[in-house]
Structure formats: C-alpha cells, structure tokens
Design a protein around this nucleic acid. Structure first.
Lengths: 193, 193
DNA sequence: CTGATTTCTTAAACTACCTTAAGTTTTATA
DNA sequence: TATAAAACTTAAGGTAGTTTAAGAAATCAG
C-alpha cells in the first residue's frame, strides 16, 4: 500500500509524528476496484470512508423513476463516502462506483472512531475536511438556485477541468441536474457562438 | 448574557470543565439585532460566527438581477455565518438579517482560532457541527436534483415545522428555488386536493 | 386609527428545460 | 476486427415553473 499521497494530504492540515503515522496507517485497509464496479450500493451498510489513491469514483443516487443524480465525483487525492449514512450507521442512500480502475485507502467506521480517540489531532483534520465539504456543498446550492444550466456548466468546467477529462457528458449532466440532451444543446451553442 | 442554552448546545457533543466553560464564555460577545436589520452585508468582512439565543435570522444572497435566494434560516439554538468567508477571511457573499428581534452569542474569527488552540475539545465540537452542516446541505442538493417543487415544499414543512411559523412564504419560496407565485399555486392545490 | 408598504393570490402568456425518438459516433468485448 | 452496447447529437412537441400585472389581505409606521 502506497500511502505517500495520503500522508501528504493529511500533512496539509496536521503534523503527525512517526509513531502517529504508523498508528494511523495500521488502521487503513487497501482496496482496489475495477472500472464499473460498485464500492457501495443503496441499502447496504456504509462501513467505510475512502481516500482515492488513483482512478476515479462517482457517487450517485436514484430517484423513484430510476433517474440517476450524480452527488459528487471523487478523483485521486479526494475523500468520499455516503457521509450521513457512514456517520450514523444507516443503510446507504447512494451508490459509489468506480468510473476507472481505482485504488483506495479505506477507514472503517470502527477505525475512524478509534483514530479520533487515539490521535485527537485527527479531530482537526476531519473538522477541516468537513468544513471544506460544507462550504463546497453550500456553494453548489447557491449556484443551483441562482444560475442557469449554461452558467452552471461553465463554472463546472472552470472549477473541475480535470474531471471533465475523466467523466462522460451524461455524468456531468446528471451532476448539473439537466438531461444529456440539454447539455448537448448547451455545448453546441457554445461551439457555434 | 444568558449562556445556558448555548452551553447545553455544546454539552451535547463535548464535556467542558468549569474552567473551560469560563474560558469559553470569556471569548464570546453578546449582541442584539432588531427585526429587519442586517448583521452581515455582502462585500463586508465576515468577522464572526453567531449562535442564535433567541429570535430568527435568515442568510440570503442576491443574483445579478437582484433576485434573493435564501441560503438558510437560523432559529434559536442554531449557529450561522457565511462559513466560507468567515473561515477564509474573504468579503461576504451573503447577507444575514434578523427576521425577528434577536440576540446572539458571537465568536470573532480571532477568538474562534484561540478557542481551538486553547481548548482542543472544541475541534471535536466544530467537527460535528461541520459534519451536520455538510450532510444537511448534501441532502438539500439531492432534493433539488430529484424532487419537484411541490415535493420539496412538503419535505420542508415536515423537516422544519417551527420555521414555517416564523417566516414568510416569499422567504420559503426563495429557499426552495421557486417564485412566491408558484408556491401560492402549490398551496392552493394542496388546500383543495 | 390611518395611509403606506409588503405579502399573498389569481391568471394568462411565456421560457427553460424535459421527453421521446431516431440517427450517428464512440467504446467495449468476443 | 466485428458487433454489440453505450454515449452523443438533433429535433419536435410537451410541461414545470417564470413573468407580468392587478387586486385583496395583512402588516407597519406615524
């Protein structure tokens, strides 16, 4: 298991001693997922939070008519889980699938709780992680309320240029809350204009 | 300053000693705001995070045409700020106004940082606060993507029955991302059906 | 208590985005 | 390398929600 990238990610917010680093990595499980496989399925117990070492994941949910809505993309160096269901140990309300061959470092809920007990510095790490997730999600809410689909698409490609390269338009459309047909029309208009 | 409610709020997640409680309360500033006054204005420095002791606040932003979008309501026992701008000390992108005569306990950014340094338990408190804010905001995103306006309105009144009593329909409409006219139509249909 | 302001309602015309369907291009798999 | 499957495009018709406007009801300031 190569934890170099993960340790660098953590080191951005807290400084671990060699001993703490060792204790931390002992709580991790390494996992790989082939493209198109699901790491989490709606209704399942959501047992882990995952750090993406390489590849790309997508979290989405299905509405009553089976329509997909993309909740988030998780590329290399991102953390992902169905946070509510992970923290509250509820059946998952979303799917998490690999959209490329991927590998992850996973923390089980048990080990997540242990980590926070044993190395309280991680409270700060996860506070900052949750803070960033909250402000990102709030900005998305604001953009959904105030911008047209075209404006949201433009912001998306500016904010996540690397995501564009790894995901399909259908998946981007379902993140933006529009149909693939309408995204296609937006792109055509941009290409001509 | 009556901090009983606030200390109970904090006590739900962490246990403070008498000494810590005193150190904490020493960092707070008490503030009142008359109905219709703004605690924060777009473009201003966002210096504080506020705990609402009594009354009701509303955070909203304006789009380029001057249309309001309600970001959140903060009733008694809620925390509120323009979180991104508070944490990153950027000019506010939202307004926070009192929709009733209100009083708040405020923590300045300086004191927020001091608090986390001096009483590391507060890292846990704010981790949990941010966690809850994140999962709430994510659920809102999912509901915006998958539900009709009518369904979102029904969920809103079930989730926040006390908010309904304190805010106008125009404000609810702007939270749901619809016009007051359309909310009125939804309500009429419900009343008849 | 009164006039002014804001909120809420109703309704008709309008628009951003959806649905359906069919054709084309790309990707995956044998 | 063939063929199936999935993604993308185009276009016509449809709908959820907007806009505009005007009147009724509630709230506010003096």
């Amino acid at each position: 298991m190569d934890t170099a990238l993960l340790l660098k990610n953590i080191n951005r917010h807290i400084q671990l001693t060699a001993d703490e680093t060792e204790k931390f990595t002992a709580l991790l499980h390494y996992k790989t997922a082939a493209k198109k496989t699901c790491l989490l399925t709606e209704g399942q117990a959501c047992q882990t939070i995952s750090y993406v070492c390489s590849g790309a994941l997508r979290a989405y949910c299905l509405d009553k008519d089976g329509k997909e809505s993309t909740i988030m993309f998780a590329m290399a160096d991102w953390w992902v889980t169905d946070m509510f269901c992970f923290l509250n140990q509820q059946p998952a309300m979303m799917f998490i699938e690999a959209i490329e061959d991927s590998c992850m470092c996973e923390l089980s809920k048990t080990n997540f709780d242990l980590l926070l007990q044993r190395i309280p510095k991680f409270e700060k790490f996860f506070r900052v992680l949750m803070q960033n997730a909250y402000t990102r999600e709030q900005l998305r809410t604001i953009e959904n309320l105030t911008l047209t689909a075209e404006e949201r698409y433009n912001r998306f490609i500016n904010k996540y240029p690397q995501v564009i390269k790894q995901v399909t338009q259908k998946q981007i459309a379902s993140y933006l809350g529009i149909t693939p047909e309408f995204l296609s029309a937006i792109r055509r208009k941009k290409a001509l204009g």
